[in-house]
Amino acid sequence: MTGNLEVVTTRHNAAIDPVLSAWGWEIPVYLFLGGLVAGLLILGALYELLHPDRPRSRALRAMPFAALGLLSLGMLALFLDLAHKLHVYRFYLAFRWTSPMSWGSWILLLVYPVGFLHGLGSLDPAQRETLLARRALAPFLRPLLRWADGARRAVLKASVVAGVGLGLYTGLLLGTLAARPQWNTAVLGPLFLASGLSTGAAFLLFFRLDEREHGFVVRWDVGAIVLELLLLGAMLLGFAAGDRSAQHALYHLLGGPWTSAFWSLVVFAGLLVPLAMELLGRRRRLPLAALAPALILAGGFALRWILLAAGQASSFREFP
């Protein structure tokens, strides 16, 4: 049937109608922090795995603990989002392999011990002395330290694996929800992982790294940004080649309500500008060295914010 279409519904459920808004600010905050933590763990562990003989700065040594702190903030946001907070323990009474949310809750539980051992083994002798000087801590820490040192490479590899799992899952969480055409793309997992790597690298650049660490982090950051741009391109092409619901997802970002935010905040200010700054900055130190990482962090957050909002607004109800 051609012509007009008029639909009237009596359903006005809060947070469902007229546009789904079940997930609020907590979820993008969590997805952003989860990705960033994944990036921190992966980069910290890779640096040591690839260059075991190089000295490491205090900042890099302390980073796994900072990562766990940030992850806890993210989990707090996730907890705040639960409508039935008293039942939070229910996540850990089940493992449902079809549910990325279930995978995620178990991955989070894995990241803590791995990140903690990663951090313990990273401490320099002076930091260890300070810790072991505390009577209450020493009996627990001494065997843990011995263990973390003895299995150092295994711990670092586990940290990479846990980081990749965490970064991928933050994307898959949305990417498996086929009910929202905007999220119905296999690209989201790798995209959020790449974005996690670049935000993790950007976060590291705020701290005092030594010359070689700095070079390593910038190289990885550039690589992650390029990968992210390619994946964003693949996502848009995938939408363009898809059915009408995918076309609508494309429209959201090309002409529709999220177009200007997506292209200006994510692609231009969050990826292209900092990429150019980092490439130029290699040759001569640019002023405003903190600007590029700040832009990357803001862009990474904007990416999740926009995709979450656009995803909730994309629905089969648009095609009655």
Binding site: A83, K85, V88, A179
Partner: peptide, 12 residues
Amino acid sequence: CTGCKACIAACP
């Protein structure tokens, strides 16, 4: 139920 709303997002 934890009220995580994954099911709400999943229902087309």
